[in-house]
């Protein structure tokens, strides 16, 4: 269990400037307010879990951070720069990557190509005349990522033919391949077996050594085991924020979400 930094340390992180900060982030879909004045700050190196009931606005938060949605109001500051409303490809180049709640890969391409094309977005993308497999640097990096997510043996398999659990890990691999400093994981263990979940938790813990992670998860065991800080969303608002033990003991959180 990772309980190294157990003090609550909300908003401002521990001394150092937060790598990601939202200020008054608000998203409205017509009459529905999916995110309501959300302000949070994530210090570098942290694993931050975002939890909350279905429809609380967790994926919407990720969509804002990764440029899929333009927030109705508020700021998203990443490494000191406001990135709210930038298009997805620009945000990707700022070193923010994500995996998706619903598996989002290139089904008709091989496992290696799924990761290779993500690596390539940073290297030699505009070359028209050399064969794509002739760049050893890109291939090496792609294979290192496949090693990390445990898919090296399946590199020539079509992504569509992988098991659900393996596709979920490929999701993470594609995100990692873009060399992010902030990685947003949207329910990475959804639909996985107990053994697969355990392996993915280990994977997340391993990669967390080098980057900051935002993770949305419904499996409380996974959340309690990984997160240093938990933010609870409820109807688009921040209901509570703190260390896992505090969140578990919080009566309001228990009422709306945990109720075990």
């Amino acid at each position: 269990m990772t309980v190294s930094q157990s003090n609550a340390a909300p908003a401002d992180g521990r001394g150092g400037a937060p790598i990601l900060r939202t200020e008054g982030l608000t998203v409205r879909f017509g009459g529905l307010t999916a995110l309501d004045n959300v302000s949070l700050a994530v210090p570098p190196g942290e694993i931050r879990a975002i939890i909350g009931p279905n429809g609380a606005g967790k994926s919407t938060l990720f969509n804002c951070v990764t440029g899929v949605l333009r927030p109705t109001a508020g700021r998203i500051v990443f490494e000191g720069e406001d990135i709210a409303g930038l298009p997805p490809h620009r945000i990707s180049r700022k070193a923010i990557a994500r995996s998706y709640q619903i598996t989002n890969i290139l089904p008709g391409a091989t496992v290696l190509e799924n990761v290779r094309i993500a690596v390539q977005s940073r290297h030699h993308a505009w070359n028209l005349l050399r064969h794509h497999r002739s760049y050893a640097d890109v291939l090496d990096r792609a294979r290192a990522v496949l090693d990390a997510v445990g898919l090296r043996a399946d590199e020539e398999e079509l992504a569509a033919n992988l098991s659900h659990g393996a596709q979920r890990n490929l999701e993470i691999g594609i995100a990692l391949a873009t060399e992010p400093r902030l990685l947003c994981l949207d329910e990475p263990t959804a639909g996985m077996s107990v053994a697969e979940t355990r392996a993915t938790v280990e994977l997340v813990r391993r990669i967390a050594r080098n980057l900051t992670i935002l993770i949305v998860e419904h499996d409380m065991e996974v959340v309690m085991g990984l997160a240093q800080t938990i933010t609870v969303l409820h109807y688009g608002e921040v209901l509570a924020e703190g260390a896992p033990a505090e969140i578990q003991a919080n009566p309001r959180v228990q009422e709306v979400y945990l109720k075990t």
Partner: peptide, 17 residues
């Protein structure tokens, strides 16, 4: 290969930069 990736999954191709 980028063109093929766009054909396979355009939003994902954007998302990886």
């Amino acid at each position: 290969m980028v063109l093929q990736s766009i054909r396979e999954n355009e939003p994902r191709t954007r998302a990886i930069g």
